[in-house]
Design a protein around this nucleic acid. Structure first.
Lengths: 128, 128
DNA sequence: ATAGCTGCAAAATGTTTGCGCGAAA
DNA sequence: TTTCGCGCAAACATTTTGCAGCTAT
């Protein structure tokens, strides 16, 4: 794979993102530093980076578009139904589940997509 | 809500589906019995039934489109990466997780979206 | 020099919606 | 008779793709 400034900036910007942005949000922010950037390039590079295992997709967030996550390791997401923020949490809880599923269903788990939805602490204190 | 033959057939057909069909797949099958049916109606009714809690959406399956599930209660899905079949399993594993998350993050979990991907027993025996 | 990557625009895909008609109450 | 739901088609939103030119190697 050849170097490209676009890809470098896309990855860099994703890493520095406070949230888990959509392709569009990422596009807008990278565009500030590289105004000729096109949205197609963002999609192409995000797909590439996912294939390379350098970033991850976050699905099931309720939003229409896929969100991206610069964390490489598998983890869970808490999605706040009120403010739509996403909190990352570790996944140790599920280590035991895989072998149980292997025993019971003879199904070999290789990937976990876990999204728990609810109300975050900020929203639950604000909501009274 | 007013009765409609379309909605009745859509729900009925979903219940009898062997898989977890997409809106399109459901549309094609219901159309056999009601050839004037339109795809828009299928979407409208599926959304309605989800709101009423009579069916569920299955997201994160890797497929581009949402799949629907006639099971009303929360449960987990095992998605086979080889044959794309989806297996339903119960979710007792996670009951303990919610309170842990409440303690640790003060986040109140109300919905679980859990998809575990891997290789099903049929595919793992076929694949050698 | 020559792949490979980009920008652009068009296409593809999945889902929603406005409208006028027909059907349920 | 009065709504509500339908069929149809157009609109919409997101993502992918073909192509011609530019850029890293």
């Amino acid at each position: 794979m050849r170097y490209s400034r676009q890809r470098e900036l896309i990855l860099e910007t994703l890493k520095n993102f406070e949230n888990h942005p959509t392709a569009e949000q990422l596009y807008l922010r990278v565009k500030d530093q590289l105004p000729t950037l096109s949205l197609g390039t963002v999609y192409r590079n995000l797909n590439l980076l996912v294939e390379l295992g350098q970033i991850r997709k976050v699905e099931s967030t309720g939003s229409a578009s896929v969100r991206y996550d610069a964390r490489k390791d598998e983890h869970c997401h808490l999605v706040c139904l009120s403010c739509n923020s996403i909190i990352d949490i570790d996944l140790d809880y599920f280590n035991s589940v895989d072998s149980k599923i292997k025993d019971e269903f003879n199904f070999t788990v290789t990937e976990h997509e876990v999204v728990l939805k609810g109300i975050c602490s900020k929203c639950s204190s604000a909501e009274k």
